[in-house]
């Protein structure tokens, strides 16, 4: 009987200890786990994209994106399902280079909108958020706010509001997860141009940490010759 009691007490203490460990956020982490909605390391991903413009119809695209959560560098390629490249653009803070842009993606506002959506979905915002019990809130440079919340089903919810408090984007990320990427993501754009983007992850490459971000024409980056990159292959529930 003493043995049973001892084991029970031990398990209770151990259990409490585990809870305590889980609740303590590490450096750069929030107690809400908002950062888990984004990849913590550089990534390259291929998505099938379905863009629904309501009465105007819907189109399918293939998107290739590459990003670095630390430097906030981003490269995006949009193709037709047949593989014809409509847009290739890379961006780093304060700088943007359009390498190819065909209609309708040859308009600066289209490029800006596309990059903003990619960054919203896949890059952890800069700065420290203010946190409530269930979500995190970032005050953005343009006066807007981004609210990120983990959902009970292990998905994530993002809400972007402009400086007037009007919601402009709502994102839903659904499990399973693969190295910081949800298999399915839905973005709803509100405002003057309303649309819905449905993204399905087809492929995820995890470049080596030491590798530089992709620089067109350069060697040793994330171009085809870089053997340090690897394709990750497991899903998890995060």
């Amino acid at each position: 009987m003493k043995l049973v009691l001892t084991i029970t007490v031990f398990l209770m203490v151990a259990s409490l200890g585990c809870v305590g460990k889980q609740a303590a956020p590490g450096p750069g982490q929030t107690s809400q786990g908002c950062e888990k909605c984004f990849s913590a390391e550089p990534w390259r991903a291929v998505h099938r994209i379905e863009a629904d413009f309501g009465p105007a119809g819907s189109i399918s695209l293939i998107g290739v994106s590459q990003g670095d959560p630390v430097s906030h560098k981003l490269t995006s390629v949009l193709m037709t399902p047949e593989g014809f490249v409509l847009l290739e653009v890379k961006q780093s803070p304060g700088e943007r280079e359009v390498l190819r842009a065909l209609p309708p993606f040859d308009k600066p506002e289209m490029v800006q909108g596309m990059l903003s959506d990619v960054a919203l979905m896949f890059l952890l915002p800069s700065g420290k958020p203010s946190a409530s019990k269930t979500s995190c809130r970032w005050n953005l440079e343009d006066g807007g706010q981004l609210r990120v919340a983990r959902l009970p089903d292990r998905g994530c919810s993002l809400e972007l509001r402009d400086k007037l408090g009007e919601m402009t984007r709502r994102v839903r990320m659904d499990p399973p997860w693969r190295d910081g990427f949800a298999r399915d993501v839905e973005l709803k754009a509100m405002g003057n141009l309303q649309y819905t983007l449905g993204l399905h992850l087809l492929k995820l490459e995890r470049p080596a940490k030491a590798a530089a971000l992709y620089v067109p024409g350069a060697t040793g980056g994330l171009g085809p010759g870089n053997q340090q990159a690897k394709d990750t292959g497991t899903w998890n529930r995060k």
């Binding site: 390259r44 291929v46 293939i62 290739v64 590459q66 490269t75 390629v77 193709m79 593989g83 490249v85 290739e88 492929k203 490459e205 992709y214 067109p216 024409g217 994330l222 171009g223 085809p224 870089n226 053997q227 990159a229 394709d231």
Partner: peptide, 15 residues
Amino acid sequence: IQTKKLEILKQPLVA
């Protein structure tokens, strides 16, 4: 079989 090479990707996209 369609093999699409992009400089951004290490491995080509195969359709």
